[in-house]
Simulated assay, not measured.
Amino acid sequence: MTDRTVAVLNQKGGVGKTTVTLGLASAAMSAGRRVLVIDLDPQGSSSWVLGVDPETAVVSVGDVLAAKPKSGALLDAIVVSEWSDLIDVVPARPDQQQLEDGTATRLAKVLAKSAAALDEYEAILIDCPPSLGNLTTNALAAARHALIVVEPSALGLRGIGGVADVIDSVWDLHNPDLELSGVVLNRVPAVSNEAERRIDELGRIVGKSAIWQPPIPQRVVFNQAVGERRPIHSYGRRASDATEVFDRLWATMRRTLRSR
């Protein structure tokens, strides 16, 4: 495990874990920093947006976790993204869904064996699947930091206690260095009394200081960036408010990583 490994998670699908993972990677790239994205979600959305088709990935993170003969070391699975040579990815493949039953510490051991080579990355971002199964447990067992992505709605906050419980369980059983380092609010409307109530509720659950600022606003350009497989920073002035948010969140992440 490296102190710069971050598991981006929530058990609910559709809250924007991949948007946050890729937005942080885009901000890092814009700042000239190297980042490795490990795609643990069998849907492979991060891999696809970064230019690696999960259906045709030669070596995937699933191969690494399953210890198949062709997999070799983690380094064999790292692919340079189409965004930039600053952003690398360990791609997903749909068949890694079968790894939901398996050893909880496999990824941690693989990262430990490659620790020296991983020192070149400013951060290692693990995009978790929308579940609290074995793949997410592997991410948490391998990470120094857990970053929860939440949408400020009634459904978005459902199960947040379960996520915190899993983090506590992994801390107790597998990884005493794991910390809940922050919560990122995604798809926050400009004006909404309901959203404000949910944000207050979230603050009572995790503590206001755990919520990273600023929140990520609702913007059509995020969906366009995913559809066009582009970093959000490539949209220039059209996405200036969105890129400013991710630049500030990236700055918070760097401070968090350096403080440990």
Rank of each mutant, 00 (worst) to 15 (best):
A73G: 08
A73E: 06
L74Y: 04
L75P: 01
L75R: 09
D76E: 10
D76S: 10
A77N: 05
I78P: 07
I78E: 07
I78G: 04
I78A: 05
I78N: 02
I78Y: 03
I78D: 09
S81Y: 11
E82Q: 15
E82I: 03
E82Y: 03
W83L: 01
W83C: 03
W83E: 02
S84T: 13
D85E: 15
L86K: 09
D88P: 02
D88G: 05
D88M: 00
V89A: 03
V89W: 05
V90S: 02
A92P: 02
R93K: 08
R93E: 12
R93L: 00
P94T: 04
P94Q: 03
D95M: 00
Q97A: 14
Q97Y: 02
Q98H: 03
L99M: 04
E100K: 01
E100S: 06
E100R: 04
E100C: 02
D101K: 07
D101T: 15
G102Q: 05
G102P: 01
T103M: 08
A104S: 11
A104I: 05
A104F: 03
T105K: 12
T105P: 05
R106V: 14
L107Q: 07
A108W: 12
V110E: 15
L111F: 15
A112P: 06
K113D: 15
K113E: 15
K113N: 13
K113G: 14
A115E: 14
A116V: 13
A116L: 13
A117M: 13
D119F: 00
E120K: 15
E122F: 07
E122K: 08
A123D: 04
I124L: 12
I124H: 06
I124C: 08
L125N: 02
L125D: 10
I126A: 01
I126C: 07
D127T: 03
D127M: 06
C128Y: 00
P130M: 06
P130Y: 08
P130V: 02
P130R: 04
P130L: 12
S131K: 05
L132E: 05
G133A: 12
T137S: 14
T137F: 04
T137G: 09
T137Y: 10
A139N: 10
L140E: 12
R144A: 15
R144E: 15
A146C: 14
A146N: 09
A146Q: 13
L147T: 09
L147Q: 09
I148P: 06
V150D: 02
V150P: 02
V150A: 11
V150Q: 04
P152A: 08
P152D: 03
P152N: 06
S153P: 13
A154I: 13
L155N: 11
L155I: 08
L155E: 09
G156R: 10
G156I: 11
L157I: 07
R158Q: 14
R158W: 04
G159V: 11
G159F: 08
G159A: 13
I160C: 00
I160R: 04
I160S: 04
G161S: 05
G162N: 09
V163N: 00
V163S: 00
A164N: 01
A164S: 14
A164T: 10
A164W: 01
D165V: 00
D165W: 00
D165A: 02
D165G: 01
V166D: 07
V166K: 11
I167A: 07
I167Q: 07
I167Y: 07
D168M: 01
D168Q: 02
S169I: 11
V170T: 10
D172W: 09
L173E: 15
L173Y: 12
L173V: 13
H174S: 14
H174T: 10
P176A: 11
P176D: 13
D177H: 13
